[in-house]
Design a protein around this nucleic acid. Structure first.
Length: 510
RNA sequence: GCCGCGUUCGUCUAGGGGUCCAGGACGCCGGCCUUUCACGCCGGUAACACGGGUUCAAAUCCCGUACGCGGUACCA
């Protein structure tokens, strides 16, 4: 590490307009990783300058989403920090001061045009080649601003309190170039940049002014954000220059696209396809945070080897902007599911039980021992911790579970004409066992099969069906051990009663 | 329209002039294991967008085209 380099400071700067989006979490993650990797600081800043789209619950939702994912800001509205406040609405004075400075130094100007007047201008100058003219050097002379109006008129309007905005003054004829940490050299012609509004007529700054002022005053060293910001970067660079500040490093991440590749991942599209699109939805759908984080991080970034499963710490340690690609990436929900399942399998029995217990629905704690035996049997068979109770209810002894329906397809496949007879005999022998361990029940079953001259499977399958009602599941003998002697015998006899009639079906397939 | 950024198996990606008739992972298909279902293991399917250059040699460099995405707001 270079001891003379300033400490790395990065930020995640969402706007509180709704729930934390997965794309937002991913941006936060990349910033977080970068900070951890370089022993830097990760800042959360709330960009609440859009009063029209402001949503009161959003900030809480964003923070809780980050915490759920294991990403804790080092500085932020809740955590505090020496560069507070961390909400833009609380830093208004700062933006006003710098905006004034830009005006005073000739890099910004007052504009009195109403939205209607601007729309009229666009219409007036519109051509086939340029359907949407900008408010820039080529048009500002025609508009009502402090560059075009006589100074006295400007003063009069200002004194009178006319609504106005402050726009940055962009001079044409320059190439604004920078090195993007992900994409390499990038440049824009200054005449393609408009005289961006810096202070809105409601007195609020726009994102462009606010984030530059904040990034500077919070000493942000690296701006890692979504690709949608790439084309406004030259404006930001100009602002840094106007203010006499050194710009931070820039890195624009590829966007997450809808499955199929059409457009960036949207709530609308996701909803139509039953996909989670917010952190909240992921949580509610039963995904584990570790899996979501792992999945999201690997969208656009790779650790440089074939390692797919990584913990938050692993990723933070291995993260590098050099290994982030430039192309958009599609959201693949199957892969998310795979990460979830993989993660569940890395858990200890107690760990998985804990994850399942979060969902409630059954008394995991008073029956902890029983549950642990079940979880051990089910771990490789469950894709979501939440599904655990439902998928293995048959591992509870009567009367909590007592099969009264038998999966029809399994019955057809596994219940044979001799099943009732074999199972009755097996139940009889089970009743005589002193020790009901897996070894004993299995030996007993195989001995019976031998006595009757049939394969063990001829008994095993119908017994499984009798015990669980279905044809899949954990090892039969392990299952019997969990259920206990009495429940097993009772269920077997019950099935014999319920399914024994099948004997009479003449064309039952062998 | 204009500006910018992208483009390797269906998806996420490795690869940065020769070691690539392109490697891994997910998915899918097949097999093994096995009392079932899973897990695991083994194998298979499948890609350098297109066209020109540069070079002894290009997935890799350059140019063009196509396509995709983003931006083009007093939203972020």
């Amino acid at each position: 590490m270079d001891y003379h380099a300033p400490r790395v400071r990065v930020r995640f700067a969402p706007s509180p307009t709704g729930a934390l989006h997965l794309g937002g979490l991913r941006t936060a993650l990349f910033n977080y990783f970068f900070a951890r990797k370089h022993e830097g600081v990760f800042v959360l800043r709330i960009e609440d300058t859009d009063q029209a789209r402001f949503t009161p619950e959003a900030e809480e939702n964003i923070l809780s989403g980050l915490l759920w994912a294991g990403v804790e800001p080092d500085e932020g509205p809740e955590q505090g920090g020496r560069y507070k406040p961390y909400r833009q609405s609380e830093r208004l004075l700062l933006y006003a001061v710098y905006a004034q400075r830009l005006v005073d130094e000739g890099h910004a100007y007052y504009a009195f045009d109403t939205p209607e007047e601007i729309a009229a201008m666009r219409k007036r100058f519109a051509t086939k080649e340029n359907p949407s003219p900008k408010y820039d050097a080529s048009t500002r002379g025609e508009m009502a601003n402090s560059l075009a109006l006589p100074p006295a008129e400007v003063c009069r309007r200002l004194d009178r309190g006319d609504e106005h905005v402050i726009r940055m003054k962009v001079e044409p004829g320059e190439r604004i170039a920078f090195e993007d940490r992900i994409r390499g050299p990038i440049s824009f012609a200054s005449e393609d940049i408009d005289d961006q509004v810096l202070i809105k007529s409601d007195g609020m700054p726009t994102y462009h002014l606010a984030h530059v002022v904040d990034d500077r005053t919070m000493w942000i060293t690296h701006v890692i954000r979504g690709e949608e910001w790439l084309s406004s970067t030259p404006k930001h660079l100009l602002l840094y220059r106007y203010l006499g500040w050194e710009a931070p490093e820039m890195a624009h991440m590829p966007l997450i696209m809808n499955p199929g590749g059409k457009g960036k991942l949207s709530k609308r599209h996701a909803q139509a396809n039953g996909l989670p699109v917010t952190v909240e939805q992921c949580r509610d759908a039963g995904y584990e945070p570790e899996a979501v984080v792992n999945f999201l991080a690997r969208l656009g970034w790779n650790p440089g080897d074939d390692q797919a499963l990584l913990s938050l710490d692993d990723m933070a340690e291995r993260f590098s902007l050099d290994r982030v690609g430039g192309g958009g990436v599609q959201f693949d929900v199957d892969k998310l599911g795979w990460f979830n399942q993989q993660f569940l399998r890395t858990l200890s029995v107690g760990g998985l039980l804990g994850r399942a217990a979060k969902w409630g629905g059954t008394d995991f704690y008073t029956r902890k021992e029983h549950w642990e035996r079940i979880v051990a049997l089910m771990q490789s068979r469950v894709a979501f911790a939440r599904d655990l109770p439902e998928t293995c209810m048959y591992l509870f002894p009567d009367p909590e579970f007592d099969p009264d329906t038998y999966d029809e397809r399994s019955v057809e496949k596994r219940w044979a004409p001799d099943s009732a007879d074999l199972l009755s005999a097996y139940a009889d022998r089970l009743g005589e066992l002193q020790d009901f361990g897996a070894e004993q029940t299995e030996t007993t079953l195989r001995a019976l099969a031998e006595d009757r001259g049939v394969g063990a499977a001829r008994i095993i399958h119908p017994v499984r069906l009798a015990l669980s009602g279905v044809s899949g599941g954990p090892s039969l003998f392990a299952m019997m051990g969990v259920l206990g002697q009495e429940a097993c015998a009772r269920r077997i006899r019950k099935a014999v009663g319920a399914l024994g009639l099948r004997l009479l079906t003449p064309d039952f397939p062998e």
